[in-house]
Design a protein around this nucleic acid. Structure first.
Lengths: 191, 191
DNA sequence: CGGAGCGGTTACCATCCGGTAACAGTGTCT
DNA sequence: AGACACTGTTACCGGATGGTAACCGCTCCG
């Protein structure tokens, strides 16, 4: 079937394939055999590159999460004031979603199961996103309140994205970002 | 062990126990045996009341989802204008979360897996919540845009709640609702 | 008393699936 | 050519778990 591949190339191919399979079926719904078949190899090959199913899944979670955080961090680095930070942050988020539907579904589609390790990996990602949002919120409030509001803002992006991804159609991330950030920024100024 | 119970009482006890077990461990993480033990009975008893594990889980999903939608619908029915609708809606939502952590985690905690049937049940609930939110959004926008923004608003409540539930501490739902609805309403007016 | 109805239990099956040992094909360097 | 390294396969094991058949025993009624 598939060509023989050097180890590093095979590893990346497996990661790419597994991302889609896991995104479709979830951690438990996808078997290692499913992934192997989708990659055009057999099960033991997977175990040459990853210690366990969990290990593979975790690697994906980390990869995808880091891509999200890096892209938003990079985008907001150029911002000067709160308003542009908000706009650039949302734009980066929605661009990421638009170009990596599978990644979004992996992280936020519900397949993460209630496994402690996976759940906290995802929680760590949203927590980091929220942490980046905290400074936008009126400093006159208690820290815990600001954090909760930050999670609410991150939830806006997640909620909107979930619908867009479920619809399946492509969408213009910049357009969505503009609307959502308008909504968010006006809210922030009102606090 | 546990008393002998009449059928209806046993059924409700099982639902109550299963809600907590599923909320903790997720659909796949919780075995029927786990639930039976937690209920103080043995496995076949579960099958006297529910056709299958899926059936039991689905019943919970529907119960919990309906409770959420009913409570918010009832609360917003008394509202006169957009602002009070927003406030009352968020208040009802956060009150529901505060008094049913397990229910929130069942629906939105990630345990729903990527199972099609379950996922669409949850999607239907958030879609209904969003549908109730759509009228609050500036009618000058295209329908799809309004729906996406509605999902963003629902996502605010979900995002904030997820953090609060993860913290584990009790919280004052009315206080949170006031902050979040301030944020949301100001945003809505700005559109 | 005795039997019918019902709530509950023991013991079991079948299947799926993560994980592994042993082996086989292919290219490369001497 | 032949030895070695590396990629990939076949065939299998063992544990977990959804689901079921058969049986037990209480309680209430005639």
């Amino acid at each position: 079937m598939s060509q023989r591949l050097p180890a590093t190339a095979r590893r990346e191919q497996i990661l790419a394939v597994a991302l889609n399979v896991f995104a479709d079926a979830g951690f438990h719904g996808a078997s290692m055999n499913d992934i192997a078949v989708a990659a055009g190899v057999t099960k033991p090959v997977l175990y040459q590159h990853f210690d366990s199913k969990r290990d593979l899944y975790k690697a994906l979670l980390d990869d995808v999460g880091n891509r999200l955080l890096e892209q938003t961090a990079k985008a907001t680095a150029e911002a000067t004031d709160g308003k542009s930070t908000t706009e650039l942050g949302f734009r980066a988020y929605f661009r990421w979603v638009a170009e990596d539907h599978a990644g979004f579904r992996l992280l936020f589609g519900g397949g993460t199961s209630t496994d402690d390790e996976f759940a906290s990996a995802v929680a760590a990602i949203t927590a980091q996103a929220a942490a980046a949002t905290v400074p936008l919120i009126d400093v006159d409030r208690p820290e815990s309140s600001r954090r909760t509001l930050a999670h609410a803002l991150v939830g806006m992006a997640e909620g909107a994205s979930r619908r867009l991804v479920e619809l399946g159609d492509d969408f213009d991330p910049d357009e969505i970002a503009e609307e959502v950030s308008t909504l968010a920024w006006a809210g922030l100024r009102a606090l």
